[in-house]
Amino acid sequence: MRILQVRDLALSFGGLNVIDRLSFDVDEGSIVSLIGPNGAGKTSVFNCLTGFYKADSGEIRFMDQPVTKLKPHKITQKGMARTFQNLRLFKQMTVLENVMSGMHCRTRAGALGAVLRSGSQRREEAHIRSVAQECLEFVGILALKDRLARNLPYGDQRRVEWARALATRPRLLLFDEPAAGLNYDEKERLIGLIRRIREELGITIFLIEHDMGLVMQISEKVVVIDYGKKIAEGGCDAVQCDPKVIEAYLGREDEEGAADERNRS
């Protein structure tokens, strides 16, 4: 079954086509990567999927329902969660509180419940805590739960973000460059974690990643875009040999310098 279907997605700003009639699918239970050179529009795709950008045209269907015009929080409620390329933790709050934010959309106590502190409200609070702790346990940083998020080392902050996304109880998890800034060991653990999320939790994974080693190691399908257009799609081996992909990454011989420039910037 297809958990995510993107049809003719288009987005432009200031006359520039950031996403250009992009279509692809993500199958339920798979691990799919979205790759492309810097500035190809990958994060913009994520932003459209999660409702942060309003696409100019096209359709996005998630679990067979249109989500194209939904606001971000609605999309998260439907079961699509994301992480951010640059860490976006609630820095002044504890790790546990950070992860508890994920349960917000799965709970409902309002102002009245808070003031009266009714039985159901207390049970819900306890539930939020226990789910948050489970998620921290899952990513392996339960011991840090009372630390302030800003005081953690970078790698652990990343894991807080993953736990936070898991706490929203997603069906599809979007990782925006999860390996950025991680060292070799941390990357190895990340690969393990991504697999465990899929195997143990049954969550479909869609990720943007620059580390090709990692992408080729875990992806079952790769979608390659450049200038907002899809240039290739398929298994790792097929995509790696695709001349268009090689050209996008390395440039044609006559414009090698320019392409290199773009890769580096």
Binding site: L11, F13, G51, F52, Y53, K54, K69, L70, K71, P72
Partner: peptide, 13 residues
């Protein structure tokens, strides 16, 4: 909210 001549940023939902 962007006014008559305001710069249009990417429209947020």
């Amino acid at each position: 909210p962007t006014g008559i001549l305001g710069r249009t940023e990417i429209e947020r939902m």
